[in-house]
């Protein structure tokens, strides 16, 4: 099981190295553990996240690609779909079994067809278009909906922090 996962992760890494989409860098954190990756995600342009570069960790399960990986922003960033502990909540990262309120469609959820590249691309599109209906961070949701300037100000602050200022 673990061998399939390793193989597939190596393949995906090769693919990412060969042609990685703009604004995304990803790779294993260390040589001896391919199940934890480090990613750098550039904030998409024309959003409050523009100019920020965010660090995130991908935790792959041992039965990958049957189960989805976890994506955790370190440090967490302010976003309606990111839990305060940094975990990202998007449908592509939910396995088909665990959707209690049947909110998401089957084809939107995790299946082995998806890949690291697709996850990171969806995260980028999530950064530019938050989904308020299934929010993970209620405060951020309310702020985003009711007080956009304040939300943008706070995001800018965190992005400055992410750059080390």
């Amino acid at each position: 099981m673990s061998k399939t996962a390793q193989k597939r992760l190596l393949k995906e890494l090769q693919q990412l190295i060969k042609d990685s989409p703009p604004g995304i860098v990803a790779g294993p954190k260390s040589e001896d553990n391919i199940f934890i990756w480090d990613c750098l995600i550039q904030g998409p342009p024309d959003t409050p996240y523009e100019g920020g570069i965010y660090n995130a960790e991908l935790h792959f399960p041992k039965d990958y690609p049957l189960s989805p990986p976890k994506l955790i922003f370190t440090p967490s960033i302010l976003h309606p779909n990111i839990y305060p502990n940094g975990e990202v909540c998007i449908s592509i990262l939910h396995s088909p079994g665990d959707d209690p309120n049947m909110y998401e469609l089957a084809e939107e959820r995790w299946s082995p067809v998806q890949s690291v590249e697709k996850i990171l691309l969806s995260v980028m599109s999530m950064l530019s278009e938050p989904n308020i209906e299934s929010g993970a961070n209620i405060d951020a949701c309310i702020l985003w909906r009711d007080n956009r300037p304040e939300f943008e100000r706070q995001v800018k602050l965190t992005s400055l922090k992410s750059l080390g200022f």
Partner: peptide, 8 residues
């Protein structure tokens, strides 16, 4: 062509 699950 590769397998869509294991990429092999």
């Amino acid at each position: 062509a590769t397998c869509r699950i294991c990429r092999g």
